[in-house]
Simulated assay, not measured.
Amino acid sequence: MIKRCLASLLILISPLAWSSVTDLASLQTQLSQHETVRGDFTQQRHIEMFEQPLSSEGHFTLNKEQGLLWQQETPFPVGLVLTQDKLRQTFAGQQPQVITAKENPMAFYFSHVFLAVFHGDTEALKEQFDIALKTESDQWTIELTPLNAPLNAVFTSITLSGSDNIDQLELLEIRGDKTDISFTNQTHQPEGLTDVEKQQFNF
């Protein structure tokens, strides 16, 4: 269940103005300036035992107050709703599965770390990662190297790159598997959640 949650959480994205990002403090300011971010994703999961990557596509909504909506559309529908203390997954034709932070604290440990990554909470990230920020021309790259268990028992590194927005996310696992996610069509309008989105967070 934890690995399934992690795979579903490889999603989030926030806008960056590259010209304003010179250090971790300015990066955090840029990542936290918008209340809501929406966009599309394409994910490729490279598993060593398979010759071809496992591909999926869909869209997401990230809200600072409420959490994350993650909707995979292909190759089959999967819906994820993540809040600070609850997680709901819905697979096509099945009843939703709901877990809470009390029931599975380890899953929520990982989810909170990933939310900190995408919200640019550098103070929280410094406790978990060695952080390297690089800029070249109009591109930037952030490489996060886990310092402590259980993160360093799962991931070798987490790398984000982009220009005006986060365009790519790579997660490299200790066992050699890799997940690549491309983000497109990011928008911050409307700034608040729609009625439909609010309803999805109500569970």
Rank of each mutant, 00 (worst) to 15 (best):
I2F: 01
K3E: 13
K3Q: 13
R4A: 10
R4W: 03
R4Q: 14
A7G: 13
L10N: 10
L10P: 04
L12E: 13
P15I: 09
P15C: 06
P15W: 02
L16H: 05
A17K: 15
W18N: 12
A25Y: 13
A25T: 13
S26W: 10
S26V: 12
L27V: 07
L27G: 00
Q28C: 07
T29K: 15
T29G: 10
T29M: 09
Q30H: 03
L31P: 00
H34Q: 15
H34I: 08
E35W: 04
T36S: 00
V37M: 10
T42Y: 14
T42C: 07
T42H: 15
I47N: 05
E48H: 12
F50S: 06
F50D: 09
F50R: 11
F50H: 10
P53R: 02
P53G: 03
P53V: 02
L54W: 06
H59T: 08
T61M: 08
T61D: 01
L62Q: 11
N63W: 06
Q66I: 01
L68P: 02
L68I: 12
L68S: 07
W70T: 01
W70S: 13
T74L: 12
T74H: 11
T74Q: 14
F76P: 00
F76M: 15
L80A: 10
V81P: 02
L82V: 05
L82C: 08
L82S: 05
T83I: 01
T83G: 06
T83A: 06
D85R: 08
T90A: 00
F91Y: 10
A92R: 05
G93P: 01
P96L: 00
M106H: 07
A107V: 12
A107N: 03
F110M: 04
A116H: 07
A116T: 05
V117A: 07
F118M: 10
F118S: 02
T122K: 03
T122P: 02
E123T: 12
E123L: 14
E123N: 11
L125K: 01
L125W: 03
F129T: 04
L133D: 05
S137F: 10
W140D: 00
L144M: 13
P146M: 07
N148K: 14
A149K: 13
P150K: 08
V154P: 06
F155M: 14
F155G: 02
T156N: 14
S157W: 08
I158R: 09
T159S: 12
S161M: 09
G162P: 03
S163C: 08
D164C: 07
N165K: 11
N165W: 11
E170D: 05
E170G: 06
L171Q: 03
E173W: 06
E173A: 14
I174W: 05
G176R: 08
G176P: 02
K178A: 05
D180S: 12
I181R: 01
I181V: 15
S182R: 14
Q186H: 07
H188F: 04
H188G: 11
H188K: 09
P190F: 05
E191D: 14
L193S: 04
L193D: 01
L193Q: 04
T194N: 01
D195Q: 12
V196G: 05
V196K: 11
V196C: 02
K198C: 00
Q199C: 00
F201K: 02
F203W: 12
